[in-house]
Amino acid sequence: MTDIIRAEHPVLEDASVQLLRAGGKRIRPVFVLLSGKFGTYELPRIQTVAVTLELIHMASLVHDDVIDDAELRRGKPTVKAKWDNKVAMYAGDYIFARSLEYLSRLKEPRAHQILSQTIVELCIGEVEQIRDKYRIEQHVKDYLRRIRRKTAILIAASSRIGAIASGAPLAYERALYRYGYYVGMSYQIIDDVLDFTSSEADLGKPAGGDLLQGNMTLPALLACEDAAFKERLMEAFRNPEQLNQEKLQPFIQHIKSSDAIERSLAVSDRYLQKAYQELDKLPPTRDRNTLKQIARHIGKRSS
């Protein structure tokens, strides 16, 4: 991937590989590679899709750090922190353009149509996340719609495009898409739970960051069923500029000690069960088993 995003300008090159060096779970390419096994597996073709999906994800993270004004990601300084917002904007745009240029080797219009529609929805999801910040009065459905766009559909598209690139049968392609979607929903819910329950060292950034940013994730929404807690949080959200880590500690502690975490994990688990059901529609191969193990690992992950 480093070779693919090589740039002429030294700062642009350094900025582009900064996030790559910080590592990551690379779950999108893994889904592409495994989904490709349900058709005719041609590594160079499948690899092109896998690399593209990871690059598109990376480009969005570089811009997300400008949006969140984040200093750290995966324990390393963000592009915007190491250089500035401008460099982060240009590096993100550069990586995105490079990923499309790279994927253009794949002459499968349907793959491009699915991916482009996914990226449009991803952008709308992020806009809606800004719209819904510090808005306590929202329904769990709003949250689920948001994470669908923010996370699940890109994982679903990764699985589906992997299947398309290998010419897998349509029934498998659909099952893989839904599998990716359910796993993606579960993955994001767990991510949102870990934001409350993990340590700063495990997260690579301060815990409780979502709440500090005004993002009402599932644990916070469920905790708001307690009217007194909801009232206190609403009061705190009235002046977002005055919020800080310290002021939010009692809220984080309350969420951690309530049943909101457990209930969130139960919702995540329901999505995982649906993901397993989709796998039953695939032939019983070693790769299907690997997809099952990944889903299981996601359900149990602690970082």
Partner: peptide, 18 residues
């Protein structure tokens, strides 16, 4: 929103050509 608007317009370019 300035960051996201740019991303959105750029995603639309890909969608139209796809």
């Amino acid at each position: 929103l300035t960051v996201l608007a740019g991303n959105y317009y750029s995603a639309l370019y890909y969608k139209i050509l796809a």
